[in-house]
Amino acid sequence: MNNPRTIEEVVTFVLEKSTDARNDDMKLYLLVCDEVNSIVGSKNIGNIPFAVIMNNYKELNLPHFESVRRSRAKIQSKHPELAGDPECRKSRKQLEGLYKTYAKS
């Protein structure tokens, strides 16, 4: 699953459906993988060992984690109603600032 538009559509669907996924990128990734797996027709992603997923995500046709995270950020900037709760947004803003400081050094 390398098509950014398709990834964005699945991420949007999951964010609309799950308020938990709006606040937690790992939860979002799991739910996106579940959606993609149902499209692909393979077994439930939760039943596959973590090491198998990490080592075989391409063969399992799973999106890259960073693609999901970037899609989430883009979608939430365009659609604030799909953004996380205020505490989560504050935390993400702080982490962004810390990273910018780190990246400059």
Results as ranks from 00 to 15, higher is better:
Asn47Ser: 13
Glu9Pro: 01
Asp24Ser: 10
Val10Phe: 02
Ser38Asp: 07
Ala103Val: 07
Asn37Ala: 05
Lys93Asn: 14
Val14Met: 01
Val10Met: 02
Asn61His: 10
His64Cys: 11
Ile75Asp: 04
Gly97Lys: 11
Glu81His: 15
Ser38Ile: 03
Lys93Ala: 13
Pro63Gln: 02
Ser105Asp: 12
Gly46Trp: 10
Leu98Arg: 15
Met26Leu: 05
Glu16Leu: 11
Phe50Ser: 10
His64Ile: 14
Thr6Ser: 08
Arg89Cys: 11
Lys90Cys: 05
Ala103Pro: 02
His79Trp: 11
Pro86Met: 02
Ser91Ala: 13
Lys43Leu: 11
Gly41Met: 03
Lys43Met: 15
Ile45Leu: 04
Leu60Ile: 05
Lys58Asp: 12
Pro49Thr: 02
Ser67Trp: 03
Val32Cys: 00
Lys100Tyr: 12
Glu8Cys: 12
Thr19Trp: 12
Leu98Cys: 13
Phe13His: 10
Ser42Asp: 11
Ile75Gly: 04
Lys104Glu: 15
Lys58Gly: 13
Lys93Glu: 15
Gly46Ser: 13
Lys43Asp: 14
Ser67Asn: 07
Leu31Pro: 02
Val68Ala: 00
Asn23Met: 10
Ala83Phe: 02
Ser91Glu: 14
Ser18Cys: 08
Glu9Arg: 07
Ala21Gly: 01
Leu15Ser: 01
Lys58Thr: 13
Ser105Lys: 14
Val40Cys: 12
Ser18Val: 03
Leu28Gly: 01
Ile75His: 06
Lys100Ile: 09
Val14Pro: 01
Lys27Gln: 08
Asn3Cys: 12
Leu95Cys: 06
Met26Ser: 04
Leu95Asp: 08
Ala51Glu: 14
Ala73Lys: 05
Asp85Val: 15
Lys78Val: 07
Ser77Trp: 02
Ser38Tyr: 02
Ile75Tyr: 03
Val14Ile: 12
Cys88Phe: 09
Thr6Pro: 01
Glu16Gln: 12
Gly41Ala: 06
Gly41His: 03
Lys27Tyr: 04
Leu62Glu: 00
Met54Asn: 10
Lys17Arg: 13
Tyr29Cys: 02
Phe50Met: 10
Tyr102Val: 15
Met26Trp: 06
Pro4Arg: 04
Lys74Phe: 08
Lys17Ala: 13
Met54Gly: 07
Asp25His: 09
Asn3Gly: 11
Ala103Asn: 12
Glu8Gln: 13
His64Glu: 15
Asp34Tyr: 04
Pro4Gln: 05
Asp34Val: 08
Cys33Phe: 00
Thr19Gly: 06
Met26Pro: 00
Gln94Glu: 15
Ser77Lys: 09
Asn47Pro: 03
Arg5Pro: 01
Pro4Val: 07
Lys74Cys: 08
Gly97Gln: 09
Arg5Tyr: 10
Leu62Ser: 00
Asn37Tyr: 01
Glu81Phe: 15
Leu60Glu: 05
Ala83His: 03
Asn61Met: 11
Arg89Gly: 06
